[in-house]
Design a protein around this nucleic acid. Structure first.
Length: 435
RNA sequence: GUCCCCAUCAUCUAGCGGCCUAGGAUACCGGGCUUUCAUCCCGGCGGCAGGGGUUCAAAUCCCCUUGGGGACGCCA
């Protein structure tokens, strides 16, 4: 039975590097039908905070990484003390200045068998005796991690590269306690664009920041898993695919740079594939948060209209915020025109004609709208190019967007007609002294 | 400084001795489609860090150099 754990220290938010470590552990557990344990490593009472725990939990939940067991390391103090006392009795540990020190022999070497990196040899003379229990009575990471991993039956320790140098110390503890060792996998780091340690100056590093930027969790998961793992030439993976295909043997051992461009592309890909109702549901609070559409207005628009609109608009959005911005036009709010081409008097007249032609259309569909508009154009001797931009601008406020007939059909006819007439009045009214 | 790890296009990667005059993806640049933008499709640009070996044959194995990263806490 596979048992793995993710063991963050609650000293800050969950960053994308930690999230990827958690993801690999979770994928391996789910792929193998094993257990995924979340263990909060809060033995440093100075730096651990409850807020950090809440942030980490919220991040994992948002990513969809569910755990089967949950532990707080600080709550296992009695058990740690018991293990440490046995080492004190056996002489592997001695007390000095109130702290408990683990004795490391100077001769020989300790070889770490890492399943990813291979055998790594550390000469023991580099290892010095180290503290396992502070003088305040609390225990130190290198000791408790071993006791907990053994007690929790962890079979595979999959963790960040920075722990490779700690592993020989931990191995000595496994040996002193007479415990069997798990398999070790030390993952390469995620770097910033300058190949340095990923930090704030590279942009967002917190998982929750990506949520707030309108990234879908499945897109972040897809992006992170591809930092160090590949399945042939495949790029876009649904969560189920990952669980099915993931294998530790396919992990890469070189560090990867985190770059936003591909994440945004993946986000678009996942938005294109997303269930429409879910997408509409996700974008609702974002639209309302923009301040122009109220929740009452949202509730009044038929859900089918929202689905159709979201479907048309999602091909043009990299993030949920992009989608929210364009979804606004589906509601009866004043249109704010971006700077556009000048609209001629002819175009203004045509818009009025279009408004009348579609005013009482039934059914009101892209096909019937196209038919009506083309009828107007034919009578007026104009082409679609003559009115498309003007109508689009009048109705959506933008120069670019979905096909004209599709987007007109997605908006309530009364709103469309009102916007066309308002634009006509604004344009021709100026010449007639205003009205 | 000491120790450890890593090294294929700008970036993510495929490659696990012959299938490689190195494949895919993002980004970028062209073209197609279209009422516009996007999606989509087609094309282009672009890489095995350098040097030694081993081998009939090396991106793939070994060594050195260089470069990058990490660890050296009574942090995790």
């Amino acid at each position: 039975m596979v048992r793995v754990r993710f063991a963050p220290s609650p000293t800050g938010y969950l960053h994308v590097g930690g999230a990827r470590t958690a993801l690999f552990n979770w994928l391996f557990a789910r792929h193998s039908g094993g257990a995924f344990v979340l263990r909060i490593e809060d033995t440093d009472r100075e730096r651990s905070t409850d807020e950090a725990i809440e942030q980490i939990v919220a991040s994992l939940r948002w990513l969809g990484l569910d755990w089967d067991e949950y532990y707080r390391q600080a709550e296992r103090h009695e058990r740690h003390l018991e293990a440490a006392e046995s080492l004190l009795r056996s002489g592997a540990v001695y007390e000095r200045d109130g702290a408990w020190w683990f004795r490391v022999p100077e001769a020989g070497a300790t070889v770490v068998h890492d399943e990813l990196v291979g055998d790594v040899r550390f000469d023991n003379d580099q290892l010095k005796d180290f503290v396992i229990r502070r003088s305040d009575g609390t225990f130190v990471y290198n000791f408790v991690v071993v006791v907990d991993d053994v007690d929790m039956g962890i079979t595979h320790v999959i963790r960040g590269d920075e722990h490779l140098n700690n592993t020989p110390k931990q191995m000595r503890i496994y040996q002193a306690l007479g415990y069997p060792m798990p398999l070790f996998y030390h993952l390469p780091m995620i770097l910033g664009a300058d190949r340095g340690k990923l930090s704030k100056r590279h942009g967002a590093t917190s998982v929750l920041e990506y949520r707030d930027r309108g990234i879908l969790p499945e897109a972040l998961v897809n992006f992170l898993v591809r930092l160090g793992w590949a399945y042939g030439d495949e790029e876009v993976f649904a969560r189920d695919d990952l669980v099915r295909l993931f294998a530790l043997g396919d992990l890469n051992k070189s560090a990867a740079v985190f770059e936003d461009a591909k994440l945004l592309w993946l986000n678009q890909q996942h938005m294109k594939r997303a269930d429409l109702d879910s997408l509409v549901h996700l974008v609702e609070p974002l639209v309302i948060a923009r301040g122009r559409v109220t929740s009452e207005m949202w509730a009044r628009v038929e859900s089918e209209r929202l689905r159709v609109g979201a479907n048309l608009l999602r091909d043009r959005a990299k993030t949920l915020h992009d989608l929210a911005a364009t979804m606004e036009i589906l509601f009866p709010v004043p249109v704010e025109c971006e700077d556009g081409a000048a609209v001629s008097e002819t175009q203004a007249r045509l818009m009025r004609a279009v408004a009348s032609a579609i005013e009482s259309l039934s059914p009101y569909t892209p096909e019937t709208i196209e038919c009506a508009v083309r009828g107007v154009l034919e009578r007026e001797g104009a082409t679609l190019k003559d009115v498309a931009l003007a109508c689009r601008l009048a109705v959506t406020g933008r120069k670019a967007g979905p096909g004209l007939f599709e987007i007109l059909a997605a908006i309530e006819p009364a709103t469309v007609v009102a916007r066309l007439r308002a634009a006509h009045a604004r344009l021709s009214g100026a010449g007639e002294g205003g009205s």
